[in-house]
């Protein structure tokens, strides 16, 4: 279980997180929605320690993540980045098996490659792709490779940062389905940030809406359409009129 308690973060005078409180139960899929620049990525990166909160506490299974042993802590996570964040200088299989080729999870090269090829197959890519470089792949294929890398070491917790951004609707649907299948099959805790409502409906067990640096609404995805929250209503229906200013 992941808990954020009164988390604050500012960049200069820009107060991005203003007291975020959120609980993500273990084994469930939480999707955080909100407009661009509302701090979704900052919240996610704060959990991973990529951004240091100014105040507040983040707990993973009751333990303060700021005090956790870094390598052991990060070994529990997998992450799919918005642009894939694949390493240009490495081949696809070396990207997927990155964690398996070094550090505490190191395996023999042949075994790491076999695992990478299997994970590529799991995300719908053929073994021939393994020896290509990321620059030789389409955007959709890069997302799949990023997904394969996120699950390569069988993490307990997987983060997805805008998984469908830049993809056509069909490829976005394929990625959404893959994420849902993989999270269910691995029994992992998932946290996704997106503003794509089709992703929300496909991936989420629970939804949280971040607005003005706080969680505006949270609840099961089934309750989202009948929440009665004007902010959430405006967002999920994509209305220009409402309490959220269209120009931020």
């Amino acid at each position: 279980m992941i808990e954020l308690r009164d988390v604050h973060k500012a960049f200069g005078s820009n107060r991005v997180l203003r007291g975020v409180n959120l609980t993500i139960p273990g084994g469930t899929s939480m999707v955080i929605i909100g407009g661009s620049g509302t701090g979704k990525s900052v919240a996610l990166k704060s959990i991973l320690g990529l951004v240091k909160p100014d105040s507040g506490t983040i707990l993973l299974d009751g333990e303060d993540v700021a005090k956790a042993e870094r390598d052991a802590f990060l070994a529990r996570f997998g992450m799919l980045f918005q642009g894939g964040a694949l390493f240009d200088s490495l081949t696809v299989w070396q990207n997927v098996a990155f964690r398996l080729l070094r550090g505490s999870l190191k395996r023999p090269i042949e075994e790491a490659r076999a695992i990478a090829v299997e994970k590529l197959r799991r995300v719908g890519l053929k073994p021939e792709v393994a020896d290509l470089f990321p620059a030789e792949l389409s955007g959709g294929m890069q997302k799949r490779v990023g997904l394969a890398r996120a699950i390569a070491a069988e993490p307990e917790i997987i983060f997805f940062d805008e998984p469908t951004t830049g993809l056509d609707p069909i490829m976005a649907g394929v990625i959404n389905e893959l994420i849902r299948e993989i999270v269910t099959e691995m029994g992992a805790t998932a946290m996704t940030i997106t503003h794509d409502m089709s992703s929300v409906r496909a991936i989420a067990d629970h939804v949280a809406m971040l607005h003005d640096g706080v969680i505006q609404w949270t609840g099961p995805v089934a309750d989202m359409d009948a929440s009665g929250d004007p902010y959430l209503d405006q967002f999920i229906h994509g209305r220009a009129e409402g309490p959220i200013e269209a120009v931020r």
């Binding site: 991973l48 990529l50 990060l74 996570f77 997998g78 992450m79 980045f81 694949l86 964690r99």
Partner: peptide, 16 residues
């Protein structure tokens, strides 16, 4: 470029 494309963040999440 690695920083701009979040590859540095990816390294950290991969315990590197």
């Amino acid at each position: 470029t690695m920083k701009v494309t979040e590859q540095l963040d990816a390294l950290v999440t991969l315990s590197t």
